[in-house]
Amino acid sequence: MESKIEYYENQSYKFDPLEHFTIRIEEMKKQSSYGKMVASKWMDIYEQILTNEGYPVVHPIGQETFSLYAEFPTGVFEYALDIDGATEFIKENNIEPLKISPKEIIQAVDTGNINRDPNLIKPNHKNPIMILQSKYLTDNHPYCINGNHRIFEAERNNDKEIEVYLFSELKFDPFFYDTFSKAIYFFEIDYWNVILDKRYLLNNENEAFAYRL
Rank of each mutant, 00 (worst) to 15 (best):
S3C: 09
I5V: 15
E6F: 11
E6R: 12
K14R: 11
K14P: 00
F21M: 07
R24M: 05
E27F: 04
E27V: 04
Q31A: 12
S32A: 04
Y34T: 05
G35I: 06
V38G: 05
V38K: 04
A39I: 08
K41W: 10
W42N: 05
D44S: 12
D44E: 14
D44P: 00
I49L: 10
I49V: 13
N52R: 13
E53Q: 15
E53K: 10
Y55N: 09
P56D: 03
V57R: 07
V57Q: 05
V58C: 08
V58W: 00
V58L: 13
F66M: 12
S67C: 02
S67T: 04
L68V: 14
F72E: 07
Y79W: 03
A86I: 03
T87G: 05
I90C: 05
P97A: 02
P97F: 03
L98Y: 11
K99R: 12
P102C: 03
K103N: 15
K103D: 14
I121T: 02
N124T: 08
H125E: 15
H125P: 00
H125V: 13
K126T: 15
I129M: 09
L132P: 06
Q133Y: 04
S134Y: 12
Y136I: 09
T138D: 11
Y143M: 11
I145F: 07
G147P: 10
F152Q: 14
R156Q: 10
K160T: 10
E161A: 02
E161G: 02
Y165K: 00
L166W: 08
S168G: 02
L170F: 15
L170Q: 10
F172C: 02
F175W: 08
D178L: 03
T179A: 11
F180D: 00
F180H: 11
I184T: 14
Y185M: 06
F187D: 05
I189Y: 03
N193S: 09
L196T: 01
D197Y: 01
R199I: 15
Y200M: 13
L201Y: 15
L202T: 07
N204H: 14
N204R: 09
N204S: 13
E205H: 09
